[in-house]
Design a binder for these strands. Structure first.
Length: 805
RNA sequence: GCCGAAGUGGCGGAAUGGCAGACGCGCCGCACUCAAAAUGCGGUGGGCAAUCCCCGUGUGGGUUCGAGUCCCACCUUCGGCACCA
């Protein structure tokens, strides 16, 4: 063995040995203590592994290595999420076929992931672009289609003019395309949807029992956005048989509804216009359609026009005007609202601008019935509301719903912000949606035995912006026969959303290579749900919600016996550099290869974990990494120097330090506090270095505890210590609580809350003895006024607090 | 606007209501060296000659023998949602 720590040589050597001996592969069928350790598979970008990936994977890998040393059969698979607009746009820009591009990128990623030293079960790797994978993505679509969960319908959708495809709501970030930042416009198109809203209540209610990071649960609750209220029907003044349904969470304020507002897209608009208003209304509707979503949202100044029609407030009996305004969204609720300007800020703004009446129907605190200068949206007491007068808001709501139901003019209703999942994309790089259109039979699912519907290998995959996928231009793909009547038919040319690929990849890992099932029932029962899933917060409402939905649906269809895919999910933090986000434009991106070369993977892994609490992220400093590098060097040299000295007597202090360290590192790893686990190991090392010689047991302990963080170095040292291959199969050390107890303790003495003295005392003294010792201290006595009445608070073995007043 | 998280040395960050600043970076000093680097040892919140003492965890109040930690109000930063009725 060399005398200097040479991470490059050590790491290459052990990576090869691990690979050849297959120590990270698991016999999935026979494992006794299965533990599924999952991390979010990467999108293989051309830039290579990002340091954010390294951070995410290292944290998850440490967890996996720890569990393996605790005796679990840890399955830690890795794969590649290689379909999607991102790859496709990049391929178009470079003029390279995405297939070629992805193959190169995957190769590079595999190399980097190997250098990282993860305990990956490579034999189970999956790639979503592999026909043997997307065949089953299509199969899932078919199951949903057969169950009526996948439906084609016309709906206002988000259209990205630059990517030339529709986007799901989740892919629109404040009116802009998540991928290319272009302004998103609304288009009315026929698209494929998964009816995730049918699962809204279960998706929401199950969250209570999930062991997931709170941030994610909160984000999902907000996103699902359940609100309870009522749907009330407002008859038209000119034809009372016709009604306009509105959704409200404040049925108690219905007496204050002084006008109605419809979304410009509302189908009733055409019926309401009069000869006088027609021109203006048409112009407004047209304008609203042209406006990008960002413009509609961005300008908080409300606009709208009077339709010319009137409705009747079914509670007050008054006739009220009907407006259209684009602050009312067609896609939510009924696309129409009853406007209560007295108690809703938006309606107040609108009423003020257009001179509409503002009526107070809720009295504020202290029976405040004064004129409103702004909307009062707090709870209060109903007033000016006929039968509800005097009722507090919550009771008035119930009374209003009851009355509406009795009189047949409305009913209790619940609605959600969550929209159905738009899964079709007018693009090339994705799994073709497996249906055909037949003039005679309509929409027909492709028979399962015909899967996969292969993505044709073509040169021209650039979207045309016609609203159709590039596949539509390939007659050999489009023209087919109907599976049902065998007549001529056309294939669906849209591909499915990238998020469908990643919504089930963890189901595939154990069954990778299985040609008969998407996921083998027996393996699935044994290994799922996933024991630990670690990933980024950015997928809180995308990947993590879709995945839950897909599992729930597959459960209901009888394919899974659980409905929640991940028993435990933890969101890791984000790495910044110099306090700011890393980005290419700032030029502060950390390239992992550079650090692998200069310090080795063990140093990079450990440093990333040392920067801060794993769930909070940290600030990457090029100087800071030196400290960890020095630490690993010192470990290396300490072990080498002491390899021979096995029979050293250990002092009580040294023994206690060993056991304390085991406890601290164990607890910190369990709680993902990797930064303090490493700090404990540094303290341990500092302690050992002060000893003249170090016992073998301490060297073993140090190496074992460090193994999850620095897998290569510790493997090397484990061998140097003459221990059996591999340290990663060795047993995690345990500590003896009895040894942790110190014989002498420092008892702190406070006088009136201020620290005055520290006493070295034998452990376990009672209060009287500690008092006596404290009162003998000169320092303490100096602060005790003569003749003062003293009160004592005693915390055994820790503190004595003396109060003099 | 709403929801969430966080404000601690020069920096990253530690602290079951009980010794604030563990651990590391940086810096200062010393040793080794002809010298430097590397390494090792010591020091390092502010005030002060001081191992005395005083001050100190965003701001202002409060609870407590005792508050970085709990409660109330506010300020700032970051993240998410955002005309969702």
């Amino acid at each position: 063995m060399n005398t200097t720590y040479d991470p490059k040589a050590i790491e290459r050597k052990w990576q090869e040995r691990w690979h050849l001996s297959g120590i990270y592969e698991v016999d999935l069928g026979h494992a006794k203590s299965p533990y599924y350790n999952l991390m979010m598979f990467p999108y293989p970008s051309a830039e290579g592994l990002h340091v954010g990936n390294v951070y995410a994977f290292t944290g998850a890998d440490i967890h996996g290595r720890y569990k393996a040393m605790r005796g679990m059969d840890v399955f830690e698979p890795m794969g590649f999420d290689a379909f999607g607009i991102h790859s496709e746009n990049f391929a178009i820009k470079r003029g390279i076929h995405p297939k070629t591009l992805i193959a190169d990128n995957v190769r590079h990623f595999r190399e980097q992931l190997t250098r990282l030293g993860g305990r990956f079960a490579w034999s189970h790797a999956v790639e979503t672009t592999d026909p043997e994978y997307y065949r089953w993505t299509q199969w899932i679509f078919l199951q949903f289609f057969k169950a009526g969960l996948a439906q084609r319908r016309k709906a206002p959708v988000n259209w990205c003019p630059s990517c030339k495809t529709v986007l799901a709501n989740e892919q629109v970030i404040s009116g802009r395309c998540e991928r290319c930042d272009s302004e998103v416009v609304q288009r009315e198109l026929e698209q494929w949807f998964f009816d995730i809203t049918r699962y809204a209540d279960r998706l929401l209610d199950n969250l209570d029992d999930l062991d997931w990071s709170d941030v994610i649960k909160i984000a999902q609750r907000n996103w699902i956005g359940r609100s309870d209220g009522a749907e009330l029907r407002f008859p038209l003044a000119k034809d009372r048989a016709k009604t306009i349904p509105v959704f409200t969470t404040r049925p108690d304020t219905v007496f204050g509804a002084t006008f109605l507002v419809l979304a410009p897209e509302h189908p009733l608009v055409a019926e309401l216009v009069t000869a006088e208003t027609e021109v203006e209304v048409k112009a407004y509707v047209h304008e609203a359609a042209e406006r990008s979503q960002e413009e509609r949202i961005g300008g908080q100044d409300k606009t709208g026009v009077f339709t010319g029609g009137f409705a009747v407030n079914p509670f007050s009996g008054k006739e009220i005007p009907i407006y259209i305004a684009d602050y009312v969204l067609y896609g939510y609720g009924t696309g129409a609202i009853m406007a209560v300007p007295g108690h809703d800020a938006r309606d107040f703004d609108f009423a003020t601008k257009y001179g509409l009446p503002i009526v107070r129907v809720v009295a504020g605190p202290g029976d405040d019935q004064g004129t409103l200068t702004e909307a009062y949206d707090e709870p209060g007491t109903a007033m000016g509301s006929g039968p509800f007068n005097g009722l507090p808001t919550s009771e008035a709501k119930e009374a209003a719903i009851r009355l509406a139901e009795e009189r047949g003019i409305g009913h209790r209703h619940r609605t959600y912000h969550l929209r159905n999942w738009l899964i079709s994309r007018q693009r090339y790089w994705g799994p073709p949606i497996p249906v055909v259109y037949c003039d005679r039979c309509g929409i027909v699912g492709v028979p399962e035995e015909e899967l996969p519907i292969m993505l044709p290998d073509v040169q021209d995959f650039v979207p045309k912006g016609t609203g159709e996928s590039p596949l539509a231009a390939i007659p050999s793909f489009v023209e087919t026969t109907c599976p049902s009547c065998h007549g001529p038919a056309r294939r669906e040319t849209d591909v499915s959303d990238n998020f469908l690929d990643s919504a089930w990849y963890f189901l595939r890992y154990p069954s990778s290579g299985d040609g008969d099932h998407a996921f083998d029932p027996e393996l699935t029962r044994k290994w799922l749900p996933v024991d630990s899933y670690i990933g980024g917060k950015e997928h809180a409402v995308l990947h993590l919600l879709y995945t839950r939905f897909v599992c729930m649906a597959l459960h209901d269809l009888g394919y899974l016996d659980f409905e929640e895919p991940f028993k435990r999910f933890r969101a890791h933090g984000v790495i910044v550099r110099g306090g700011t986000k890393m980005s290419k434009s700032r030029g502060n991106v950390v390239n992992p290869d550079e650090f692998f070369d200069r310090y080795g993977a063990d140093t990079l892994r450990s440093y990333l974990m040392f920067m801060g609490p794993y769930e909070e992220g940290g600030d990457f400093s090029d100087q800071g990494i030196e400290g960890i590098y020095r630490f690993l060097n010192r470990v290396y040299h300490l072990v080498r120097k002491n390899v021979g000295h096995s029979g050293v007597d250990v002092s009580n202090d040294a023994l206690r330090l060993r056991h304390q360290t085991i406890r601290r590192v164990t607890e910190d790893i369990e709680g993902l506090k990797y930064n303090t686990a490493l700090a404990a190991l540094m303290e341990y090392l500092n302690g050992l270095q002060r000893e003249p010689a170090v016992a073998l047991e301490d060297l073993r302990t140090l190496v074992l505890l460090l193994a999850p963080f620095a897998p290569h170095l510790t493997e090397e040292l484990w061998q140097a210590l003459g221990q059996a291959y591999s340290v990663h199969k060795a047993t995690w050390p345990s500590y003896d609580a009895a040894i942790l107890v110190a014989k002498t303790v420092t008892v702190v003495v406070q006088v009136d809350g201020k620290l005055r003295d520290r006493l070295q005392l034998p452990a376990g003294l009672d209060e009287a003895a500690v008092r006596e010792a404290a009162l003998q201290s000169d320092v303490v006595r100096r602060f005790l006024p003569d003749g003062a009445e003293l009160r004592f608070v005693h915390v055994p073995d820790r503190l004595l607090s003396i109060a003099t007043r």
